[in-house]
Amino acid sequence: MKVITIGKRLVAAEQIVLVEAFDPASNPEFKPEKDFKARIVLLNHDTVLAEEAPEQFAAAHELHLLAEDNVAINRAITFRVETFTPTESFKPTKPYQTRLKWHDTNGTEKSKLLLTPPEALVAQIVNGTVETPSGLQNDHRADQAAAATDRAGWRLFEAEGLQSSKVRCG
């Protein structure tokens, strides 16, 4: 088991769901002493603030960065991907296209809205490919294989409206 130290807290790597940018302006009453740049969401739905930006945290701890969203995800987690369409009662200010879903340790469904198109997200999680700014694809299977050494066996990735895929890791 890989353990990551974040400030004074020790976190098992497999408990990290995602890492997103932390915006202190979103809660003006919160006045931290440190310059936190990332919010880490754990499987038990706790959050931990980190002084590293999501892209730095992802690189240091073998998480997969979704550049368009500046969100790093842990591909060891079983995710479901759905298309997102705003409703009359819920119209976000950003043009979200995708809802990334997972279950916490209590079995409760959790989700995160993303700008990344759903098909691109499926390709990135399942195939390990990443769209570059020039539109070319880079194959990260070697990086994915290296990261897979920490997790063995089969992992199931479910995609709403797309064929479910089983991916062999390790």
Rank of each mutant, 00 (worst) to 15 (best):
D69V: 04
A12V: 06
F22E: 04
A72V: 03
K166A: 08
F90H: 03
L114C: 01
R155C: 09
N44P: 13
Q163C: 06
R9K: 10
F30K: 08
A60K: 15
P118F: 02
A147N: 14
Q144L: 07
A145C: 10
F79L: 00
Q97T: 05
I73S: 02
G135N: 13
T83S: 06
L100Q: 07
T149Q: 15
S111I: 02
R9Q: 10
L43W: 04
L162G: 10
V126F: 09
S89Y: 08
A145L: 13
L113I: 03
D104T: 08
E68D: 01
A50Y: 10
R99P: 00
P24A: 08
G128W: 14
L113G: 01
K34N: 06
G161S: 07
F57Y: 06
L63W: 05
S111C: 06
G161H: 08
I125A: 05
G107A: 06
K110C: 08
G128M: 07
A38S: 15
A12S: 06
E29P: 00
E51W: 14
L49R: 09
L63M: 04
L42P: 06
A60W: 14
L10Q: 11
N106E: 12
L49K: 04
D69E: 05
V3H: 15
V17L: 02
T93L: 05
E33V: 13
L43Q: 14
T116F: 03
C169A: 07
G170V: 09
K166L: 14
Y96H: 03
Q163A: 15
R99T: 06
E160L: 13
L162I: 07
T47E: 12
G170C: 09
T129G: 00
